[in-house]
Every structure is written in C-alpha cells, then in structure tokens.
Amino acid sequence: MVAGEGVGVNWLIDFFGDPANWSGPDGIPVRLLEHLQFSALSLLLAVLIALPLGLWIGHTGKGALFAVLSANAARALPTLGLLVLIVLLMGVGTDIPVLIPLVALAVPPILVNTYEGIRGVDPELRDAAYGMGLRGGQVLGRVLVPVALPLILLGLRIAAIQVVSTATVAAYVGLGGLGRFIIDGLATKDFPRTIGGAVLVALLALAVQLGFTFIQRLVVSPGVSERQAVR
C-alpha cells in the first residue's frame, strides 16, 4: 500500500514538474480552458432548456410526472454508453455530437429541482402573494423563485458537477479538455500523465462545488436560508 502510494506521488511530481506539460496545445492551461468552455456551454444550454420548463411545470403543475421520470431515467442511463452511441450516430470529428449527451444529462437535475423547489413553496405564501394583488407571473418571479432558489441552485450544482465529470469521460470519444490526459495516458501507458489528469479533474470538480457554495451565500435571500436548512 505505502509503496504504491509513493509511486503515485512520484508520478504526480513527474507530470506537474515537467515544463512541457504547461505549454502548447496539449498543455495544462489549454486543456483546462477547453474543459471549462465545454462545461460552461453545455451547462448554459441545459439551463436554457430546463429552467423555463421546470418553472412552468412547478407553477402550473402540468407535466410533473415527466419531470420526475426524466430525472430517474437520466440517473439510470450509463454516460459512457450514451456518449459512444450518440457520437457514432451523429458522426465523429466535430464537437457538436459530444455536446448533446452532455446537455441531455445536465437537463434532468435542473428540471426536477426547479420543479420541486417551486412546488414545495408554502401554499399560504403563494395565496398571500395572490391576495396582495400580484398576478401569476409576478407571483412566480417575486415570491416563488426567491423562495425556491436554494433548491434551484442545488439542481444547477448537481448538473455542473455532472457536466464536468461527463466531459472527462467524453475525452474517450475525442473531446478535448482534461480528460485527454487520462485517456491518452492510459492508451500510451503514460501513468504520470493519467494520474496528473485525474488529479486536475478532481480539483476542478472541487472548485465547481466551492463556487456554487459561494454563489448560494451570495444570491439566496438571508430570510430564506435562515428558515430552511439547505444541504
């Protein structure tokens, strides 16, 4: 065990200590930037689809079963299988086919948490807002969304982590990003590269997690976060 860990650490020193790994198209900064770009784009597309849909389902109560079913299905679908199938069907070569499964897997957590968040708002609060003379859209925007924000952000965080993680696996079907170090390293038995890539991906995921905790502190109304213990 101890000897094994020692080897792992030496590999890390090899990888991160090599100046060649810090520049050029296969350098750490370029790969990190690629990973961030793909992840941000996928997350943005997923938000554009899932957030309005989740708000609408939560507010009107229509299609709730669809939201819950899609979340369950997304959890069961194997990401690697989905990636290779869609990329084979759509054609290898460009990055667009890879973005489809990334977006598809990010939609359900946002959708279901937004829906649950809106639906879970205290009905008395909703009635009070209507009683004050607010209309449907105003109730949603000024009352329901701020109260549901912790859950909506939880959905965004789960989706973001999912995207970062799937983008890593997507290196197998040719996507750039940090996953390249892992996949190329495995293919050429270059273990320092593989382990180095894995550590970078883990650090990125931790940074995303921390970033969302920070955003949550920043945007959730203090009244809401005080009343509700959010995980």
Binding site: E5, I161, V169, I182, I195, A202, A205
Partner: peptide, 18 residues
Amino acid sequence: NVVYSLPSLAVFIVLIPV
C-alpha cells in the same frame, strides 16, 4: 458532498497505483 462531487473516472485512476 466533496467525495460525491469527484468524477468517478478520476477516482478510479487515482486508485490504480493502490
């Protein structure tokens, strides 16, 4: 929560030496 956020592929790789 931190453990859960770690991508599975990355954790598999880091465990390989052990």
